[in-house]
Amino acid sequence: MANKIPNRQAICETLMQAAQTDKDIFVLCSDSRGSASLTPFANAFPEQFVEVGIAEQNLVSIAAGLAACGKKAYAASPACFVSTRSYEQAKIDVAYSNTNVKLIGISGGISYGALGMSHHSAQDFAAMAAIPNMRVYCPSDRFQTRKLIEALLQDQKPAYIRVGRNPVEDVYSEEDTPFEMDRATVLSEGQDVLIVACGEMVHPAKEAAANLKAQGIQACVLDMYCIKPLDTQTLLEKAKGVKGVVVIEEHAPSGGLGAAVAQCLVENEPKKCRLLSLPDAPVITGTSKEVFDYYGLSAAGIEKAVKELIL
């Protein structure tokens, strides 16, 4: 892999750049600064960094208190913990009280591979999206992550952002990262099938579309980094005329991107759909690639699903 920069590091770099002139940016960690790639921020801006120890409930509540006093609080902790251990704090102190807290779920999905279900966050999209006034984002690469954080720095509303642990293949480039807040990015146009992906699944979706094209199947690919609010406008526009829709996500089958896409389509533009996701079960042990391949969360898995759906 050419890229060595994980998305979490892109978050740190973007926040450090902004913090040079914006003293209201605060980063909070729960003994997670290393795994969040936020040690450089902590070292460079000690007065804008808060360490709370291994206490995720405290992490989110303290972030909300800081935000209530004008701070732009970025609370970073493993996605498995911040999306469930501190769920009520996210619901009450952040979303319900409408504080400017951005919850950064690091090492999301099955990034922690062999560590087991305690360390997997396959429920975070569903959990966070169910909270009124909570937005849910999952960027696909380092360039999109940077654009997303830059956009989030401009608003005052709560959000949950999931990123993975490991560097991922670039989808975009330094020169070419089309990005509009809360709008999906169209990676390819095609009239046969629509593929909707987010996070680490965007790259295999893009690869699958290229392979399908060589076989005469034209696939439209959407990078739907905005799981909530879902970009329904682009989704419905691109779904028109295709024979089927494939959604791929690193998440349990309930309540994630697939569910959101299916709900929108059923209400507006019914289509045959296929969801490629993690199972509703503890995930098999392995590296990310081994696990993804096992469950068909790969270019080959997408190609197979597309053919089964539309041919």
Binding site: S61, I62, A64, G65, L66, C69, E88, D93
Partner: peptide, 16 residues
Amino acid sequence: HGLPVCVGMALAGKRD
């Protein structure tokens, strides 16, 4: 919830 939220508020006051 109140006490941990107030920790954040008090910390903001100290830092500012």
